[in-house]
Design a binder for these strands. Structure first.
Lengths: 105, 105
DNA sequence: CAGCATCCATATGGATACTG
DNA sequence: CAGTATCCATATGGATGCTG
């Protein structure tokens, strides 16, 4: 593979910008194939602050990896799902997990 | 795959700590299968500062992904190579590149 | 040549209180 | 319930100068 690392917009750097974040991959992996509400998501990802969860979700929505559906109800209800592109990240994440399982670093 | 995201030391979080950095994967990919000197490495990875390159190399050596060989010469000469574990990251990186190539996000 | 030390700007991210 | 807003601590990272 002949990739020019110098280029700030090379595919590797662009992908790393997505997966590099501390939380994005955890969020994607947690949503996975299901539909999940904001509150449950927050409970699942122990350690994340509200600010981070919201901002990362917004980031992922903007990038087209996550789809957000709001219901006009009181109390509010918001559901998150992965888009088709988002789902394509799942095998990548699984490879990362596999690597982590194989090595004690 | 049944991974507990809550655990700070789950395989996914651990792997993300490695690849999450802005530079680590670029360095690994740049070293690749060859032996490369510090200076050339620095020239290859446009945009990285000396401080970052040194600290990230140290990090990767500590983690066992990179091997460093210093020569007792004047002027100094230091060669970096990937360890076997480090080389196992190459397919992961290639998948990241592939993902970047496939999607315009 | 390789790499350390220092200073400093900015980014990241946590805690808390508040709102529709 | 699902966010926003604000304040603040720390981490990240760049520039520069120096050294064996």
């Amino acid at each position: 593979m002949n990739i020019n690392i110098s280029d700030e917009h090379c595919p590797l750097r662009r992908t790393l910008e997505i997966i590099g974040g501390k939380w994005t991959m955890l969020i994607i992996f947690q949503i996975n194939e299901r539909t999940i509400r904001y509150g449950e998501l927050k409970r699942c990802i122990v350690g994340i602050s509200e600010k981070m969860l919201i901002s990362q979700l917004k980031f992922l929505c903007d990038k087209g990896f996550v789809h957000k559906k709001s219901f006009a109800e009181i109390p509010p209800k918001v559901e998150y799902t992965l888009t088709d592109i988002g789902k394509e990240l799942l095998p990548v994440i699984n490879q990362l997990i596999q690597f982590g399982l194989n090595h004690k670093f």
